[in-house]
Design a protein around this nucleic acid. Structure first.
Length: 125
DNA sequence: GCATTGACGAAGG
DNA sequence: CCCTTCGCCAATG
């Protein structure tokens, strides 16, 4: 596959998709104007208890290709817990608003309605 | 090689 | 919703 400077990436040069790649893959399917949670992605990948790893994977979402809409992934409460990893921090909220997602006080408005569950939308494996 | 740190989450209080 | 504890596991010191 693609070569990546493995400075922070956990070896993605294997042919089989790593957990991280799967995370990115799923994230790329999040429709515009919708959001999902770290846990939902983890759940879809069958490692629901490893939501932290999803967040960890998002850490590299910025420099991985193709780009991953990490701004559409929030925590289970709809809070933009990852905004500090954007530059500037307000970028996440800005991107979401641009897609029609209302954000108030670092939290997605109508999160429940906008929630996109990969397990349902992409079909169960 | 142990300890700490997370873009998390569920459960219990 | 807040708080704590626990589970999770790669990365980092």
């Amino acid at each position: 596959m693609r070569k990546i400077k493995n400075q922070q990436l956990p070896v993605v040069n294997k042919e089989e998709p790593s957990f991280f790649e799967n995370v990115w893959e799923v994230a790329r399917h999040i429709p515009k104007g919708r959001v999902t949670s770290y846990g939902a992605i983890a759940n879809y990948l069958g490692t629901k208890s490893s939501a932290r790893m999803v967040g960890w994977a998002m850490n590299g979402a910025h420099w991985v290709k193709p780009k991953v809409p990490a701004h559409r992934v929030v925590n289970r409460l709809g809070i933009l817990s990852g905004k500090h990893h954007f530059s500037p921090p307000g970028m996440m909220e800005k991107l979401l608003k641009k897609e029609g997602v209302k954000v108030k006080n670092d939290q997605v408005v109508d999160f429940k309605k906008l929630f996109w569950d990969p397990a349902e939308e992409l079909g169960f494996k």
